[in-house]
Simulated assay, not measured.
Amino acid sequence: MLVKTSSITSSLPLLSSIFKPPFSLPKLPPLKPFKSACTPIPRPSTLFAAPRMSWLNKFGFGLRSASDSAVDSSSSIAQGPDEDTPSPGQEFAQFGSGCFWGPELAYQRVSGVTKTEVGYTQGDVHNPTYEDVCTGTTKHSEVVRVQYDPKECSYDTLLDVFWARHDPTTLNRQGNDVGTQYRSGIYFYTPEQEKAALESRERQQKLLNRKIITEILPAKKFYRAEEYHQQYLAKGGRFGFRQSSEKGCNDPIRCYG
């Protein structure tokens, strides 16, 4: 459609009068400060401040400070004697001979043994977990604590089971299990147990062509292992194959179920 130029030019004065500066804009209300619903971002000095890694200090990392007394206290507790008491008329014994599953089942089968527990001892960390011990930094040993009736079972009998269950000449190793927690050790509760352990080691040394590295030390605080470790093989192990814990049973022990 054609538009006449005369009509456009005739309207220019009207348009120019409307848009002639200054323009009049509507007034807007003043802006209010914006308040965020989010948590304010910390200042850089606190945002990047590293938290104190007290659990690392427990293992000897980092700088020592006054607060490290808690670490020393933990070590002192862990290195203290085993203050648990056996049932009346019973005695305790502790043995470390590699992974504690197999040795526990062996002791369960001994006549006169009334209770067995697996756990950790000889370390310097209070209340260790299995994961802690497996790091190799806590110095714990995996042990079986045996409660027995001395009228029915002699300490020498328990020592015989100990020597038969592992190789006492391999340092921090039993088969494929490698680590300080698998070291060979006899941990005595009485002078009589210490004497018997030393004499037993001497006798055993004469039977072997390699040096025995079994440590014989006072029994220290015993930390009971997690419940799934207790009587592990008798309950079925990893594959659900239960192994007999009957007294006098001579079935071969499959260490991993």
Rank of each mutant, 00 (worst) to 15 (best):
V161T: 10
F95C: 02
D251A: 15
K235C: 10
E131T: 07
D68G: 03
S7Q: 12
T129V: 01
F23M: 05
P150I: 07
D124K: 11
D251R: 12
I8H: 00
E246G: 01
D177S: 12
S65C: 14
A78P: 03
S11I: 03
K32L: 11
N250F: 06
Y256R: 12
T157G: 00
G112R: 06
T9F: 14
S154V: 05
F100G: 01
G96T: 02
K206D: 10
E131Y: 00
T137C: 09
P252I: 02
D132W: 01
T180L: 03
K220Y: 01
T170S: 14
R52W: 12
R254L: 14
H126T: 05
A70E: 14
S67D: 15
Y130E: 05
L2G: 11
D167M: 03
L208E: 10
V110G: 02
P51L: 08
S69W: 08
P128S: 04
Q108C: 00
N57E: 14
S54G: 01
R254D: 15
G119Y: 05
Y130V: 04
G102N: 01
R183Y: 03
L56C: 09
E202T: 14
R43I: 06
I186V: 13
H166P: 02
I77C: 08
F48K: 11
K247G: 06
Y130N: 02
R183Q: 07
C255R: 11
L207N: 13
E192M: 08
S141A: 15
N250K: 15
A197E: 09
K221G: 03
F241K: 14
Q94I: 06
D149E: 11
E131H: 00
A164G: 13
A106Q: 09
G62N: 08
H126M: 01
P33C: 06
L47P: 02
D72C: 00
L105K: 04
Q243S: 06
H229F: 12
H126D: 12
Q122M: 14
I216L: 06
